[in-house]
């Protein structure tokens, strides 16, 4: 039990997937300009991340490892993710139209979110068991969501109140803000591995 707790704390705070491990930075900069899109993206990422990394884990253990096809990992994982995103989009459109309207535009963006692919690969690299992979996928997604929502909040606030120098407006100040956030997270280093 303690192991799992450690895994959760480490994935959310200490090795935050976004600020410390640098996975998924493109949507981080792209959708953090408003709170509502940050929330939509967060929900979509949580959903796809868990599903994709579990399917990839199962495929790796039951097909790739068994038949000695480890070198196809990259190809298989990215196809699984691309197909899954498409599938989720179609199913959601049919079964839950309101949810689709809220999350729809974020789903295609997720295919190129390197965090989904990264977590799937990390699960195999770190040799996690199925349960560990599940916990890891959930907690990395939560870590991503936390950083994204915090940054969106800061950016909204900054747009309305702060006077940002002209040359730093837009992406540059967003990156510097993210750096400062990373600094606070770095303060937690040493709590766990």
């Amino acid at each position: 039990m303690e192991d799992y707790l450690m895994l959760v704390v480490s994935a959310i705070f200490i090795n935050n997937i976004l600020l410390i491990r640098f996975l998924g930075n493109c949507p981080f900069v792209g959708v953090s300009s408003s709170m509502s899109s940050a929330l939509g993206m967060s929900a979509a990422v949580l959903f796809v991340n868990v599903l994709a990394s579990l399917i990839c884990w199962i495929l790796q253990k039951t097909v790739l490892d068994v038949f000695g096809l480890e070198y196809l990992q990259t190809l298989v994982f990215i196809l699984v993710i691309a197909a899954l995103v498409q599938l989720v989009e179609i199913i959601m459109q049919k079964v839950a139209p309101p949810l689709y309207r809220a999350l729809g535009i974020f789903l295609p963006l997720i295919t190129t979110n390197c965090m989904i692919f990264g977590v799937a690969v990390l699960n195999i690299k770190e040799e996690y068991t199925f349960m560990q992979a599940l916990v890891y996928a959930i907690s990395t997604a939560l870590g991503f969501n936390m950083a994204l929502i915090l940054l969106a909040g800061i950016r909204e606030r900054m747009d309305s109140t702060a006077r940002v120098p002209k040359l730093l407006q837009g992406v540059p100040i967003c990156l510097i803000t993210a750096g400062m956030m990373g600094l606070t997270f770095a303060g937690l280093l040493g709590l766990a591995k």
Partner: peptide
Amino acid sequence: IRPVGAFVCLGLLLGIMNV
């Protein structure tokens, strides 16, 4: 060389490019 430096360094570089 910490992750933090990467963000700040890239942000400042983008600013310089803008200038």
